[in-house]
Amino acid sequence: MAELLQFVFSGLTVGAIYALVALGFTLIYNASDIINFAQGEFVMLGGMTTVFMALAGVPLPLAALIAIIVTTGVGLALHRFAIEPARGASSVALIMITIGASVFLRGVAQVVFDKRFHSLPPLFGADSIQFGGAAILPQSLVVLAGATVIVILLWLFVERTLLGKAVIATAANRLAARLIGVDTRRIVDFSFAVSAAIGAIAGILITPITLTSYDVGTLLALKGFAAAMLGGIGSPLGAVVGGLLIGMIEALSAGYLSSSYKDAVAFLIILVVLVAMPQGLFGRVKVERV
C-alpha cells in the first residue's frame, strides 16, 4: 500500500510539472490556433533568468519577478516580430516559425547563460513530507497548487471578463471578431504574453525539482504538448488532467511494469485515447467548414 502511495506521489509530482507546462499551450491556441513549440523555451527562460539574477545577487522574489517580466517580453516579441508578420500563412508554416523560435531562444540562452545545470531552492525546504509510509516533497504540492490557481484564473478570465470573451471570439472567427470591434491583434498579443508568463512561472516553480539548463525546454514542451492534446487542446482543465494523467501513467508503469518503457506506455495510452476520442478528453468538436 505504501508502495502504491509512493507511485501516486511520484505521478502527482511529474504530472503537476507536465500540467503546468501544458497550460501554456492553451491560451495561444485559443486565440490563434497555433501550437507554440517555443513554449518549452518560455519555461527555460523563467528558470534560467531567475537562477542568473539570483547568482548576480538579486533577492529571489525580485529575481523571479524579473524573470516573468523578461519572458513575457520575449513572448510578446515572438508574436510581434515573427507570428504577426506571417499572418495568413498555413498553420504548419506558423508552427515551423515557433520551432525556429525555439531553436533560436535555446541558441541565445547557451551564449547568454551557460550550458550547465542549475537549481533553485524549494519554497518550503527540502525535507519531505511523510504520509502513510510514502514521501512527497513540499515543492511538488507547490507546483500542483500553481497549476490549480492558473486553471481557476484562466477559467474566471474566459467566463467573467470581456477580454476573455474577446479571446474566444477571436479564436472562433477572426474576421467576425474584428467586425464587432475586437482588436484581434491586441488579443493575440495578449495571449502570447500571458502564455509566456505562465511558462515562466512554470519554469520557476519546477526548477527546484527538475533542475534547469538551456535545453530543458525541448522535452518539457514535448510532454506538455502531449498532455495538452490528451486533455483536448484549448481546454485549461484538459491540460491539467492530461498532464496529471501522463505523470500518473509514467509513475505507475515505472513502478509496476518497466522503468525503461514507462514513456512508451504513456504514449501508447495517448494513442489509444485519441483513437477512441479524437478530440481528446475535454476538447470541443470542430466542424470543418466546406
Partner: peptide, 10 residues
C-alpha cells in the same frame, strides 16, 4: 530528462 525517480527507488 526525468524529474522524479522515486518509483524506481521504492
Amino acid at each position: 530528462r526525468d524529474s522524479d525517480m522515486t518509483p524506481q527507488l521504492t
